[in-house]
Simulated scan of single mutants.
Amino acid sequence: MVQKQAYGSVLLKADDILEFLSSDDTQHRLSEIAKHTGLTPPTASKILNTLLLIGYVQKDPDTKLFSLGPRLLKYANKSLHQLSIKRIAQPFLEDLQKATGETVHLGIHEFDHIKYITKIASKKPVSLYSEIGKSIPMYCSAMGKAVLADLDDDDINYYLEKNELISKTENTITTAERLFEEVNLARQEGFAFDNGEHDLDVFCIGSSITVGRTNYGAISISLPIYRLSNEVLESLKQNLLTTKENLIGTLR
């Protein structure tokens, strides 16, 4: 079998450099990096300059020694954070889905959006389409509004400065005043609603998973609006809050 050739040899060389820098906690000279990666000093220097520019490595201005940069470490921590909350939340989500019979999600706050990272679909005849990895705006999602509710008002105002409240459906909240009403209600109740605000025929109830000042994401239950009744809503609230309490208890 013919092995496919990787595209972008410079990326592979950059990976060799990063691998070497991560092998210990010490800083290294350009000559060391070139020797241990099999690169010429000019080639290693060019790649290091690019990695410096994007923050994947850092260079001590006095000693001229290189080490891993803060931006790469931020991504690494983000990845570990996602993997950890997915693993921890999985059994709680499974229990929540069995208790409600509806689709449940786990999402994380990423770049002013909520990103789906786990989903357990309903087995009922009509279930909902959603895609792992998809991101939706915070202002028109139950999980997003629940996460916003855990922020200070100043942080929410900053979010509003950066994000236009664009109508997704006829039910979408498009004013700051209305969004703050929803956020304040979520602060009191411990959950938030998406009542056909992102998808017209979908109702969603979500709650954030925050311990202290650290937010681990949010969980939600989604269902077609036609299946919603007062009795169903009360059951969803109770099961969601119980799941939230149990999950937070595990994270403490």
Rank of each mutant, 00 (worst) to 15 (best):
K35R: 15
K35S: 15
H36F: 14
H36E: 14
H36K: 12
T37F: 10
T37G: 07
T37S: 09
T37R: 11
G38K: 06
G38E: 04
G38Y: 04
G38R: 06
G38A: 06
L39H: 09
L39K: 07
L39T: 08
L39C: 09
T40P: 01
T40W: 00
T40Q: 12
P41A: 07
P41G: 04
P41L: 00
P41H: 01
P41M: 05
P42C: 06
P42Y: 09
P42L: 06
P42D: 09
P42A: 08
P42M: 07
T43C: 05
T43G: 06
T43W: 02
A44E: 07
A44Y: 07
A44T: 05
A44I: 05
A44M: 03
S45M: 09
S45I: 05
S45W: 05
S45G: 09
K46Q: 06
K46E: 01
I47R: 06
I47G: 04
I47V: 15
I47T: 10
I47E: 04
I47Q: 04
L48I: 15
N49F: 07
N49Q: 13
N49L: 10
N49S: 14
N49P: 02
T50K: 11
T50E: 12
T50C: 00
T50S: 11
L51C: 09
L51Q: 09
L51H: 09
L51R: 06
L51Y: 03
L51N: 11
L52R: 06
L52D: 05
L53C: 04
L53W: 03
L53Q: 13
L53S: 11
I54R: 00
I54F: 00
I54D: 07
I54V: 08
G55P: 08
G55I: 06
Y56C: 03
Y56L: 11
V57S: 10
V57P: 05
V57A: 13
V57L: 02
V57R: 03
V57H: 01
V57K: 03
V57T: 15
Q58G: 08
Q58S: 14
Q58V: 13
Q58D: 14
Q58W: 04
K59Y: 00
K59F: 00
K59R: 15
K59L: 14
D60S: 11
D60E: 11
P61Q: 14
P61I: 14
P61A: 12
P61E: 13
D62Q: 05
D62L: 08
D62Y: 04
T63P: 02
T63Q: 04
T63I: 10
T63G: 05
T63A: 11
K64R: 08
K64D: 07
K64P: 00
K64C: 00
K64I: 02
L65A: 05
L65Y: 04
L65C: 04
F66W: 14
F66M: 03
F66A: 02
F66H: 13
F66R: 06
F66S: 03
F66I: 13
S67K: 10
S67M: 04
S67V: 01
S67L: 02
S67N: 06
L68R: 13
L68E: 14
L68Y: 07
L68V: 15
L68C: 12
L68M: 14
L68F: 08
G69M: 13
G69N: 10
G69K: 12
P70M: 03
P70F: 00
P70I: 08
